[in-house]
Simulated scan of single mutants.
Amino acid sequence: MLLIKKHWRLLVGAWVALIGLPALFMTIDASCSPISNAFCRQWLNFQWETVLAGYAGFAGAAIALYGIAMQIRQDNKNQITGQMHFPLKAAETMREMAEIAAPLHEKLRNLGTCERVELGPSGVFYKLTMGHRETVARACTEAIKTMHSHRAETVQSIRDKHTESIPHEALAHIDKVLRAFKFDNLTKHDRHAPSIQYGMYLHHTARRLEMIVTEATKAADIIERAYLQMLDTVQTKTGPD
């Protein structure tokens, strides 16, 4: 059915030729009976029925071979689509993650700013320098809840069960996406001053949202590009439509 829709003009032309040519030749036969000139004498000696039957048989064989080639191509495409079903599902899920994480990240950036500070042997921390603490904390918590409701477990399951069908280049990006879902909580740094506690909460939440956007997009791009390249390979091997 797909081939008919795609090549309907060619099929209509073939049917017109199949009906029109015999009708034209029979009209010439009728016009040349009785023989009225040299052209008619030559025409009536020409076995056009035999020639037309030969061409019709050749055309039928060509159409059959073409149909077989197109069916093989379609079967190969269906096989590739089946092989890539789960990776493509993961790519779709990760694109949804990125679309959701992007505005959340932008919202957090607008709510407050952090400043990098070094606290001696304790290491590097981030201090909330602008923004209301409770507002920032509430926004971070809501962002984390929103992201946890968007099927990271789907990607994790596909990563674990269908690793062999996922393009190798995408695996590292998928792993980064999954790691980014391990958000910190507000109480992790409660031993520090409130400005550090809230600053770290904001910094880590925003950073992980940014990582989800970046790495999920990269992974989805690689998977979808690999799928299209596989389809192009089938197209090249079987020839143009």
Rank of each mutant, 00 (worst) to 15 (best):
I28Q: 06
D29E: 15
S31D: 14
S33D: 14
P34D: 06
C40R: 03
C40T: 05
R41F: 07
W43P: 07
L44W: 01
N45F: 05
Q47K: 14
W48P: 01
T50G: 12
A53C: 00
G54E: 13
F58R: 04
F58V: 15
A59S: 15
A59H: 09
A62T: 12
L65T: 12
L65W: 08
G67S: 12
G67C: 10
I68Q: 13
A69Y: 09
R73T: 00
R73L: 03
Q74W: 06
Q74S: 11
D75W: 09
D75F: 05
N76G: 13
K77M: 02
N78F: 09
I80Y: 05
I80C: 03
T81F: 12
F86D: 10
L88E: 02
L88F: 00
K89R: 11
A90N: 01
M94E: 06
R95L: 13
M97N: 15
A98T: 07
A98C: 08
E99R: 09
I100D: 04
A101D: 04
A102K: 15
L104C: 08
H105L: 04
H105V: 01
E106S: 15
K107S: 08
L108K: 09
R109P: 04
L111V: 05
G112A: 07
R116L: 11
V117D: 07
V117G: 10
E118C: 02
L119T: 11
P121V: 08
S122G: 04
S122F: 11
S122K: 15
F125S: 07
F125G: 03
F125Y: 15
Y126I: 03
Y126E: 07
L128A: 01
L128E: 03
T129F: 00
T129I: 13
G131F: 06
G131W: 04
G131N: 05
T135M: 13
V136I: 10
V136P: 02
A139V: 01
A143E: 02
A143I: 03
H148V: 03
H150N: 12
R151I: 01
T154W: 07
